[in-house]
Design a protein around this nucleic acid. Structure first.
Length: 421
RNA sequence: GCGGGUGUAGCUCAGUCGGUUAGAGCGCAAGAUUGUGGCUCUUGAGGUCGCCGGUUCGAUCCCGGUCACUCGCCCCA
């Protein structure tokens, strides 16, 4: 229809949407400060290696969803499909290993080549939090508490539940994985085609299959609990009791898994049924092995990411009225005076609407439409006496005031507005 | 990558069993109203009927392809 179309799976944000977006990021950022996080901004593209090595060669994110390109120097680059790997790379590149733990917060665009649908875009935006260099159940609980606090402040915890699970340490994971593979191989013929593929590529993924038949088979499958080492079990119990201690409700879901290879121990997801086929709004877990994989020393870490577009689907946002006052010249002769006056007010931090065209009636209509509560009318008489005619748009009342007085009153009005919020 | 649904005005949608100038509501613009607003009334602008091809005397309508949007599968925040 239109000659220029946006790239598939991308979206433009105007006005209210853009404000909504910014509101969420700002809330997360200031809350992050409250929890002691430092903001970090990393490039949106990295050497492809950063993701290839860390996410798991067989994960879909790497094998079919990554935007990879060769730059003019012949190096293989990738648009970041997620935040953690880049943050860890930055952590290592900048020698932050000397000062642990690091609590890092970020927000920005991510890119995945996927079929767009509700809550899923090719360019989407995430907020993320990572705590690198500390292994304590309290850290996991604190990270989750931050996410929980954010969702609560956004007023979207209604209808959102926290699902919790442990993937165990490397040893637990290995034992469980082997048992699971053995079991599913024995019933392979009954598995769905998708899950037969998963059995080859990523057997743990069968656990969260949506297929009815698979779910039936899962009832008889080995339980992860049985394969948890005492250390892994104790750690998970610690996370659960820490959450209970601060009154965060959760639901243990033994079938919860993580998509990316680097996760171990705690895994969690805040899920909602209002996101179409998607469910996770904020999800993460512990990834103790990742830093070592990327060439650093053995360093424990835990974090999460939240989809900003998904948060927007769940939350409502009412923008504030922007303009404090509209200045309306009665005729073109007062236009310059109105312009000068508007500038004075703006320098005093008062937001001013000024129309450049139309007669008084037109401009009044414009002001009304923009929900402006105050209008200053400037005519020949006002100019001569250095007054303004101040009209209250709600009551319809209007009074004449000397300009200086009107200016002072306007600033007071503004302050009052601020106090109210 | 696979499957379903939908593409007509800026937005939400009618409509033509294939026929000459394609409609409504909202929105937008002008006027009624030359120093005063949301209501009302009048008038107006705005469309390659997604795109390409086929069938036909004739296609916005039927058929094929394609693109886009949307929902789901896969996967994931």
């Amino acid at each position: 229809m239109s000659p220029m179309q946006p790239v598939r799976g991308t979206k433009d944000f105007f006005g209210q949407d853009a404000e909504h977006f910014r509101h969420i990021v700002q809330l997360a950022l200031s809350l992050g400060k409250c929890y002691g996080y430092l903001e970090v901004m990393t490039p949106i593209f990295e050497s492809a290696n950063v993701f290839l090595r860390t996410l798991g060669e067989t994960s879909d994110v790497v094998s079919k969803e990554m935007y990879v390109f060769e730059d003019k120097g012949g190096d293989l680059m990738a648009l970041r499909p997620e935040g953690t790997a880049g943050v860890v790379r930055a952590f290592l590149s900048n020698g932050l290993t000397q000062n642990l733990p690091q609590k890092l917060f970020y927000a920005g665009p991510m890119f995945r080549y996927e079929r767009p649908q509700k809550g899923r875009m090719r360019q989407f935006h995430q907020i993320g939090a990572e705590v690198i260099g500390e292994a304590s159940p309290f850290v996991d609980a604190e990270v989750i508490a931050f996410g929980h606090h954010l969702l609560r402040q956004l007023d979207i915890m209604d209808g959102v539940t926290l699902k919790l699970n442990t993937l165990g340490d490397a040893q637990s994971r290995e034992g469980f994985r082997n048992a699971l593979v053995a079991y599913f191989q024995s019933v392979e013929q009954k598995l769905s085609p998708e899950s037969r593929l998963r059995l080859q590529k990523n057997p743990l993924r069968i656990l969260d299959s949506k297929d009815e038949g698979d779910r039936e088979l899962l009832k008889e499958a080995p339980r992860r609990e049985a394969y948890l080492t005492p250390v892994a079990k104790e750690y998970f119990d610690g996370v659960c009791s820490s959450l209970a201690a601060i009154g965060i409700l959760y639901e243990i879901d033994p079938f919860l898994v993580r998509g990316l290879d680097y996760y171990s121990h705690t895994a969690f997801e805040f899920v909602s049924s209002n996101l179409g086929a998607q469910s996770a709004v904020l999800a993460g877990g512990r990834y103790d092995g990742l830093i070592e994989t990327m060439g650093g020393g053995a360093t424990p870490a835990v974090g999460w990411a939240a989809g900003i577009e998904r948060i927007m689907l769940l939350s409502s946002f009412v923008p504030k009225d922007v303009l404090d006052v509209a200045i309306i010249p009665i005729s073109e002769d007062q236009m310059e005076a109105a312009f000068v006056m508007a500038t004075h007010l703006r320098h005093a931090d008062v937001s001013v609407g000024l129309e450049f065209q139309g007669n008084v009636s037109k401009r009044m209509k414009k002001a009304a439409k923009q929900n402006v509560h105050n209008v200053w009318l400037i005519g020949e008489e006002e100019i001569q006496t250095n007054h303004v005619t101040w009209k209250n748009m709600e009551s319809g009342e209007q009074i004449s005031l000397p300009f200086a007085e009107a200016m002072a009153k306007m600033q007071k009005f503004k302050e009052k507005k601020v106090f109210k919020e």
